[in-house]
Design a protein around this nucleic acid. Structure first.
Length: 450
RNA sequence: GCCGAUUUAGCUUAGCUGGUGGAGCGUGGGACUGUUAAUCCCAAGGUCGAGGGUUCGAACCCCUCAAUCGGCGCCA
């Protein structure tokens, strides 16, 4: 039963004039009552199969004629290089076997019209597609666009693992049930936990910092959950978070890894998924630019000056929201870091800049093309005294953070890390119109099905 | 939480100042020996998101609700 021959290889010319057995699903079907053209799909591509009545007999031909889209089949035949076939190759069928039929009362619902609905007048894909396609996500996954996105996603995950492992980071897992917040408490998902209330984690960070004195350089790729009612093309309630934590490192050194991993992802997509990027109409030169060029760094104060010079009414001390980020990203053709935010704009765990205590040693990485923030990170407050002072200053209850504070009581060292939104990176590099496009079953504030 | 929009056949939609809801795709039947999201003929398929109101009469006007989409804030 093992499948040995892939449509992508047949289209590459590897099996010309040979007899092969192809296994896949029917993508399209047309023809006359003497011959049918079956477009067969598998995970590697599509190929036209020519089925002639004379070659397979009347009875079988009738089955072929009545076959429905997404029927799974095994077709044997001779590979024929022919310009008339899409992709340059076709299969002249000698046999045809239906494996999994489709009920005509419920034909495959993702048809031409449904796909058109996801595209606007200019032929641009609408953000996330139509409600119908979201409801039928389990079937929409089979379309070429979604298949391409999932392949890009796989390469991105692989690239992140490779980057950190090559840099001697150790993969480490934090719990998903937690009791304390990392970001604001209002964005936690509550979970009943045997009579108590637990939360789904927003970040592995606090638990990674606990392991930092053991492993020194650690990373993860794990889901994070945020109950933000955000309705934007950059937000999911469940997203994949690549995070790293590193002992004995400064903000600059941590940023170098942020830049390193993002550039490595871009490079890997170019190397492994050129075909998919092209099929998505993505400009390869753009991805190469993101892979090859250094990412500039800019202090928060400079960003505010630029914004003010552009006539924006931003005030010093306020966090930079998406509208501000978007203006900034227009001046750059590669991602850029913003560093040294005002202390008042960031939570207690960020380390205060020893040179000027109005600022913290942090960084955000903003992706160009209007995508905005893909990394947030920085140095952590590592002395027990300082962390207690910051909690006090911020008016944050220290009880849920007791274990975290405790780690500082036993040999705290300078350290830091960042979190990277993997889905955001894939969305940006793939040129997706919505982050929903790059995750198989997106979870947002209003959708948790299918 | 706030602002804006949408909801008509399985899907995509047309529907004028309120007067018997049309079409394309798909499905079913038929024709066709090289099709390129094939083409041609025929058929079935609708309590117009739900509830209420105005009216002789509502898909259309008004109210309430629901679902969904887009944007903002917040963030990765």
């Amino acid at each position: 039963m093992v499948k040995t021959i892939w449509i992508g290889d047949v289209q590459s010319g590897k099996y010309d004039d040979q007899e092969v057995e192809l296994k896949g699903w029917i993508k399209r079907e047309r023809g006359s009552n003497k011959m049918r053209f079956i477009v067969l799909r598998d995970s590697t591509g599509t190929i036209q199969c020519v089925v002639k009545k004379d070659a397979i007999g009347e009875e079988l031909f009738l089955e072929v004629k009545n076959v429905l889209i997404e029927t799974s089949v095994i077709i044997n035949g001779i590979v024929n290089a022919d310009e008339r076939a899409d992709g340059g190759h076709e299969l002249i069928a000698t046999s045809f076997e239906i494996i999994g039929p489709v009920n005509p009362d419920r034909p495959f619902p993702i048809n031409k019209e449904a796909l058109d609905s996801a595209v606007d007048e200019d032929g641009e894909l609408m953000p996330g597609g139509s409600e119908f396609l979201l409801d039928n996500r389990h079937l929409y996954l089979r379309t070429s666009r979604m298949t391409s996105m999932l392949k890009l996603r796989s390469s991105a995950f692989g690239a992140i693992h490779n980057y950190f492992r090559n840099e001697d980071f150790i993969e480490y897992q934090a719990p998903n049930f937690v009791t304390g917040a990392v970001e604001g408490g209002s964005t936690l998902f509550e979970v009943p936990y045997f009579g108590r209330t637990a939360y789904l984690t927003q970040s592995w960070q606090l638990y990674a910092e606990a392991a930092m004195p053991a492993l020194e350089r650690l990373y993860t790729i794990a889901p994070s959950f945020r109950a933000e009612k955000s309705r934007t093309r950059r937000h999911l309630t469940e997203f994949w978070h690549a995070e790293m934590e590193m002992a004995w490192a400064t903000n600059d050194e941590i940023m170098a890894h942020g830049e390193g991993v993002v550039r490595h992802v871009a490079r890997t997509l170019l190397e492994e998924q050129e075909k998919e990027l092209t099929s998505l109409d993505r400009d390869l030169d753009l991805i190469a630019r993101y892979a090859d060029n250094p990412y500039p760094r800019m202090r928060y104060d400079e960003a505010v000056e630029i914004l003010q010079a552009k006539g924006d009414d931003v005030e010093w001390g306020q966090d930079l929201d998406y509208s501000k980020e978007k203006i900034l990203t227009q001046d750059f053709d590669v991602p850029h870091f913003l560093t040294h935010y005002p202390k008042i704009a960031k939570p207690f765990y960020h380390r205060v800049d020893p040179d000027d205590d109005n600022y913290v040693l942090c960084h955000d990485l903003l992706a160009p093309e209007g995508y905005g923030e893909i990394i947030g990170g920085g140095e952590r407050t590592w002395s027990e005294e300082e962390i207690l002072a910051r909690l006090e200053e911020e008016g944050t209850d220290k009880e849920p953070y007791q274990f975290y504070i405790d780690t500082r009581s036993y040999g705290g060292v300078p350290h830091g890390g960042f979190g990277l939104g993997v889905d955001r990176v894939v969305s940006w590099l793939a040129g997706a119109t919505h982050i929903r496009e790059v995750i198989p079953f997106p979870r947002t504030s209003r959708r948790v099905t299918p």
